[in-house]
Design a binder for these strands. Structure first.
Lengths: 213, 213
DNA sequence: AGTGATGGGATAGTGGCACTCTCCAAGTCA
DNA sequence: TGACTTGGAGAGTGCCACTATCCCATCACT
């Protein structure tokens, strides 16, 4: 498959594919002569993943490159590889370390994790982007006048725990490591809009049920 | 309070506040002379909401203006006002109407809503941004080779239904209409990173529990 | 062999967006 | 009075994801 056909089959303009090649988001095709390269189904698949990351997931190009590097890195163990791919995904805003709201939020998060018995998160949590994003979001909420304590978050966290179990059940259906990691990335990025849409639909439904149209 | 103090108390540069004033995200201060204006606590509060929308929620300025207009519009009924505010929030990518993947995804979503008995969503769903976002996300997943049928989505939807119930319970604590709408906007925008962070933490926890570190 | 089309590489340019800089006239405070 | 501040307005900045252009080796076809 030549670049033009790759473009035709994926719907991505050739100029954009060249850009992705330059940025290292897409591995170069197999050189068949000095000025021509051949692309395969793997390129098409990867290209669609790139598009999903960038357009649906709004992942910046630089972060997408890191994610894909982790996906491709055979030298990593499966867990590390998956973690590396997910940790490279951007996560909202970073908190300022010495912001008092952030300190209070961090304490509340720690208490929440302790209450839930999520020991893993307590050990490695401070390194996880998800932990920091959570702290930053809670600090912002507090600053806006919507304080959230651990007790208030606990039911949400328990529900997300059940969701995570569903996520991992689904991952187990994919046999090979690469497929698992790719599926994990797709799930992390593409299931987020799905979940959030479902939440909004559920809110509309519940609101109509309680208060009528 | 003068502009400089508003800036100092909010941490937002004066130039940026001027920009928000120009863009209509912040109502003008009370003119105290030809070249001076007085700002109150309401301005500070609104400014923080604007920042939260734009920085945490990544809401484009134009969309934020619409959201805030709905929040301020006393002439709307409460339900409509809340809906207007939430519907103005951006929701990922729009699907192309005649994309076969999107058509199939829409059918699957309709079946899901029917299975769940979410009649409201089925009636007004096609208009709701959440509905269209869901269809677009599912179409993208299908194109990537991760098809999701209604049966697969149902448990997620049920969990989001419980989450929505929690959301609305929380909203009921706010007595006045304006507070309710503001809280709803804050919840829609700021709880999303909270939920997603909790999901990632839960995934890490569950993964460690199943497979070890 | 000749010739127009195509493919791939490199570079510079575009457009959108969220600010941010600069200037100015009109006020304020010591 | 004179230095400083304030609010308004327009132009400029920086970032980022593309995209348009150019070049020329190679390919397909005659």
């Amino acid at each position: 498959m030549r670049l033009a056909e790759l473009s035709g089959r994926s719907g991505v303009p050739t100029a954009t594919i060249k850009y992705y090649l330059r940025e290292g988001l897409l591995p170069p095709g197999e050189r068949v002569s000095a000025t021509q390269a051949e692309y395969g189904e793997a390129h098409l698949r990867r290209l669609r993943l790139v598009r999903a990351l960038i357009q649906v997931g709004k992942v910046p190009v630089a972060a997408a490159r890191e994610v894909l590097a982790a996906v491709d890195d055979d030298s990593l163990g499966q867990t590390i590889r998956l973690g590396a791919a997910l940790w490279a995904l951007p996560q909202g805003v970073r908190p300022e370390p010495d912001d008092p709201d952030a300190v209070a939020a961090a304490r509340e998060v720690d208490r929440l994790l302790a209450d839930l018995g999520w020991s893993t998160s307590r050990e490695i949590g401070n390194l996880s982007p998800a932990y920091r994003t959570l702290v930053a979001a809670l600090a912002t909420l507090a600053r806006l006048g919507y304080p959230c304590d651990a007790a208030h978050l606990a039911p949400y966290a328990e529900q997300m725990g059940r969701t995570a179990a569903l996520d991992l059940d689904m991952l187990e259906e994919y046999p090979t490591p690469v497929e698992k990691v790719e599926a994990a990335v797709a799930a992390a990025v593409l299931y987020e809009p799905v979940l959030l849409s479902l939440r909004r639909l559920a809110q509309e439904e519940e609101s109509a049920r309680r208060y009528g149209l």
